[in-house]
Amino acid sequence: MAGTDTKAAETGDLAALEAGLDALERPAGPPRRGAGPARALLSAVLPPLLAVGLLLGAWQLICMAEVKPRYLLPGPLDVWRALVDQWYEGTILGVIWESVSRGALGFAVATLVATPLGLLVGRVTPVRMAVGPILSGLQSLPSVAWVPAAVVWFGLTDATIYAVVLLGAVPSIANGLISGMDHVPPIYLRAGRTMGATGLAGVRHVLLPAAIPGYLAGLKQGWAFSWRSLMAAELIASSPDLGMGLGQLLENARVNQDMSLVLASILLVLVVGVGIELLVFAPLQRRVLRGRGLMDGK
């Protein structure tokens, strides 16, 4: 039985050889970081903090130079006080919530509309030839341009606000999905087809999952557009009948010539919009990209 023995020995050798190769070839653990997590956090947070500090300093200097009278250009401390006053009045959280909930609802509806639209335009050539250029055009049209028309059509109602948000967000979400599908490497589609993923199964099991990074980028941009459109709409469609959001807060402050509150409102619009992007969309995107090995880190 010498033959079988050699064969068994060879199979064993092969397994050992292969295990060795696998161990050697695999990326060896996560790359070493320069220092502990506290240090890393510090180096990530410090530069932007420094920049903000410099900006505040410059602002304060300009105020002290009295380029404009104080009631026109309040300093950082005045703005801070305005914010604190709002806080003690107890309405500010409600105002933020009004805007955020409108933004979220508008964004959700925009996603529901844009996803099938993007699929249709991306997959059906005649639809693409007809609708594709319109979608790209709409994406570059500032949605604030829709506000006057929407006010005429819907009056000073929530419908006006949502119409403007949708017109702002739908094109960018749909375009994100379309470009995500366009950039799917053809080899995945071919591999799917040889496995029997044709037609709807191909869309569900290969095309859509492969397009998710582009789709997420579109969603993130869609949120930015939703928020911008919402603020434009709230600023212009400001009426006592409508709930008060950040845009209306800003507009009321302007009417009352309260420049500190104007600046404080602008700051809130910025912080809330960017904050949601950083807290919701950035981690989602990071997770997806890392899962696919398209980004460093664990």
Binding site: I187, Y188, R190, A191, P209, A210, I212, G291, R292, G293
Partner: peptide
């Protein structure tokens, strides 16, 4: 069919 590139789905 097995391709030159692995063509495994990264998701």
């Amino acid at each position: 069919l097995m391709f030159q590139e692995h063509a495994l789905f990264p998701w």
